[in-house]
Amino acid sequence: MFIVNLTYIKPLEEVEKYLAEHITFLNKYYGRGNFICSGRKNPRTGGVIICNAKNMEEVNEIISEDPFYENGIANYDLLEFYPTKYAEDFKSFIE
């Protein structure tokens, strides 16, 4: 499991230009079962994605398709973790 921490490096006006494409990207990976949760930071300096992937290489491949990545809108910090305690409804993401 991975936490993808996006930090905008361009003004919000640039972020907005690619937001619809970014949402399409998110929907693709929600549909494939890779993305579990995502959202904006508060204050709006970036976003966070909880990603289920087999390894860091797969996460990097996924991120490379993000319009925010392709257009230099955000930097990405990745944190891998192993869920050992979780709500019952979350169990399907672990198995």
Rank of each mutant, 00 (worst) to 15 (best):
G46V: 04
L19Q: 11
I50G: 01
I36D: 09
S64R: 13
S92W: 13
G72N: 15
F68L: 03
F2D: 01
R32Q: 15
P67V: 08
P83I: 11
V48M: 08
F93S: 08
K85M: 14
T24Y: 09
G46Y: 00
D66I: 07
A20M: 10
K91R: 15
E95K: 15
L78C: 09
I94L: 15
F93L: 09
G46W: 00
I50E: 01
A74L: 02
N27S: 10
K28A: 09
M56E: 07
I50Y: 00
I36N: 06
E95F: 13
K85R: 14
A53F: 09
D89H: 13
P83W: 14
N34Y: 05
N42E: 12
Y69P: 00
E13D: 13
Y76T: 00
Y8M: 05
I73K: 07
R32S: 08
T45E: 12
R44C: 06
K91W: 08
V48E: 03
R32A: 13
D89I: 13
T24G: 02
T84R: 12
A20N: 12
Y82K: 15
V59R: 01
S38T: 14
F2I: 03
E61V: 07
I94H: 06
G46K: 06
E58M: 14
K28H: 11
L6G: 00
Y76I: 01
